[in-house]
Structure formats: C-alpha cells, structure tokens
C-alpha cells in the first residue's frame, strides 16, 4: 500500500497539467478553485464520516470558523495582521481546537444523535457570526484579505493559474497528511471503530480518543478550506455562505465519491462542485444564448431548473453507484 496509489497520482498529474490547455483565465479556473477548496473540506469529512463512521452535518461551521479566524487574524481592519502564511497555520490549529471542543462533550453520542448535534452547531455558529457584529461585521463580511507572498513576490487575485496551483498544492499536502494518518495507528483505529466499535474497544482501542483525533483532523481540514475560500474571495462573504447547504454539499462529495476513499473524495468534489459551478452555469448560458428565458413564465428561465437538475443528478448517481464513484476497494490501497 503506497502512500499515493495510481488513481491519486493520475489525478494530481492531470490536474497539474490541465491549466496548460485552458488559457490563463475564465470559468474553468473559478470552477476548479472552488473544487479544490471543497476537496479540502471533503477530505476532512471523509476522515470523520468515511473512515470513522461519524455522521457530521456541520462541516460548514468549521469552514466558517476557519474563514473568520483567518480574516480576523490577517485583515488590516484588525490589529493582528499576521500575514497569509501564519494566518493559515493559525487557522488549522484553531480549527482542530474547535473540533476538539465540540467533540469532547458530544462524541459519546451515537450515530444520528451526533448528526443533529453537529447540525445544531452549524446553526449556532451562523447565528453567533451574524449577531456578534462588533467582531465579525455581521452580514457585511470581513474584507479585504491578504494575498499569499513568496519572498518579495505576491500572488494577485487575477493570477488564476497561480491560485489554481497553490490550491492544488494544499490539496496534495492534505492528501499526503490524510494518507499518512490513515496508515498510522490512529488511522487503523478509525477504521476498526467504524467496523465494530465494541470489538475494537475490547482490543484496547480507546473509542473516545480515537474519535476525537478523527474529529479534530476533519475540523482542521475544513477550517483550512474555509480560510482558502475566504482568501480566494478576499472576503469572508456573509455568514450565510457557510450554511447547512454547504455541509450538505460536503456530505454529497464524500458519499458520491465513495465513503472512506481519498481518491473518491477528490473525484466527488470534481463532480459535485463542477456540476454546480461549471455544468449548471454552462447550461444556463447555452439556454440563454439559444433565446430561452426572459419571459415572465417561471418555467422559461433556465436558472429556475437548477435545483431540479442537481437533485436528479444526486439520485441517479447513488442509484447507479450506491457505493460511490470510486469506493475504497477500487482505490487500490486502503480498506
């Protein structure tokens, strides 16, 4: 079992090469930057739900914590201004701590009880961000945020290729970290807890500690995704950018990709986020160019069909591939 099995290597080779054929700007970059951000969140959720079997419906809250931590520590409207790289480091640490704090009292809960607690945590986080507007600027969002620097060189927002490769680099780092963890003592403990909590407890695996490590790892990755999401926009956006729908998207990525499969999560992010920011956008554009829309009839506007198409696609994918597009056994390694 190699650290990076063939499908994952192929993914990174293709992704790294793609921009060479795609010009230097355009919808492609917007879509793939979002795909990479959600790959990070998906990788985090895959550790929690895929490896350890804990249903987490509050990943968006950890993204929000990441985005706002990063913004408060780096934006020039606050006194800290620690810069992009230290901001990222601090975000990952605080993300892990937040995961620990939520996990400590609640990880004893079973299955769907934990799911609703995480969902509730998501709602609480949104309300707190909205209500404490003295600190978080309420629904205005915090902006602008710093760009990453490499020595004296700064990556500007327009340098789409640079951002693309930077984000891909973060995804690669996250994949390496997750794969390392998966093969470590903790990782084997995660899988055994998922398969049979009672038996693994009998074998001397501490369930609480094992779950906590998984939960903190997942939260840290989601926070990283959130920080990069904000950095990419140069704004945290409003708190509602991290609502329940985002948690649902993360869950769909992991399950559509294949629970417990790192390569699957990467593919899941391409499919789910790509559908959202590439396919649906293109469909609406084509329909608009073909002269559809503009009338007052609700059916005539292609934008009004987006939910329907998205929903149908979800149902079809799990119907045809109930174990996900790339389940762990096909990934060539884990499982």
């Amino acid at each position: 079992m190699r650290l990076l099995p063939t499908p994952i290597l192929a993914y990174f080779a293709i992704m790294a090469a793609l921009p060479l054929f795609m010009g230097t700007s355009g919808l492609f970059y917007d879509a793939f930057q979002a795909i990479f951000v959600f790959s990070l969140v998906g990788l985090g959720l895959n550790v929690v739900t895929g490896f350890t079997g804990l249903l987490n419906l509050g990943m968006a809250a950890f993204m929000a914590i990441g985005a706002y931590t990063f913004a408060i520590l780096t934006s020039d409207i606050y006194p800290f201004q620690i810069g992009f790289w230290w901001g990222i480091v601090a975000t990952v640490v605080i993300g892990a701590v937040a995961g620990f704090l939520l996990g400590a009292p609640t990880l004893g809960l079973s299955g769907d009880y934990l799911a609703i607690v995480t969902m509730g945590f998501g709602e609480i986080t949104l309300d707190v961000l909205k209500n404490l507007d003295a600190v978080t600027k309420g629904t205005q969002g915090i902006n602008p945020l710093p760009r990453p620097t490499f020595g004296s060189w700064t990556l500007e927002l327009q340098q789409e290729r640079g951002w693309y490769w930077l984000l891909l680099g973060f995804v690669l780092l996250a994949v390496l970290a997750v794969r390392r963890l998966e093969r470590s003592r903790s990782g084997r403990a995660w899988l055994s807890i998922r398969e049979d909590a009672l038996a693994s407890q009998c074998m001397g695996i501490p369930p609480k500690r094992t779950k906590m490590i998984a939960f903190s790892t997942g939260s840290a990755l989601a926070a990283l995704g959130g920080a990069l999401f904000a950095a990419l926009l140069s704004s945290t956006g409003e708190p509602a950018s991290y609502d329940f729908q985002v948690s649902i998207l993360a869950l769909c990525i992991v399950i559509v990709g294949g629970m417990g499969s790192v390569a699957g999560t990467l593919v899941g992010a391409v499919v789910m986020v790509g559908m959202n920011s590439l396919v649906l956008v293109k469909l609406a554009d084509w329909a608009g160019a073909a002269g559809v829309g503009g009338a007052s009839n609700v059916l005539a506007s292609p934008n009004n069909w987006k939910y329907l198409i998205f929903g149908l696609a979800l149902i079809l994918v799990v119907r045809l591939k109930p174990d996900g597009l790339l389940p762990p056994r096909l990934e060539g390694g884990s499982g």
């Binding site: 399950i255 009004n304 987006k306 939910y307 998205f310 979800l314 109930p322």
Partner: peptide, 20 residues
C-alpha cells in the same frame, strides 16, 4: 441494501427536486 448514507444522499436529491 445500500449503505445508510447513500440513502441519505438520495433523500437530499429528492428534497432539491421537491423544492424546485
């Protein structure tokens, strides 16, 4: 016979369709 979570995703899909 599929996993509980595939079922969950199917339900999420149904939810989107009904909203539309």
């Amino acid at each position: 016979s599929a996993s509980k979570l595939s079922l969950l995703v199917s339900a999420i899909g149904a939810s989107f369709i009904l909203v539309n």
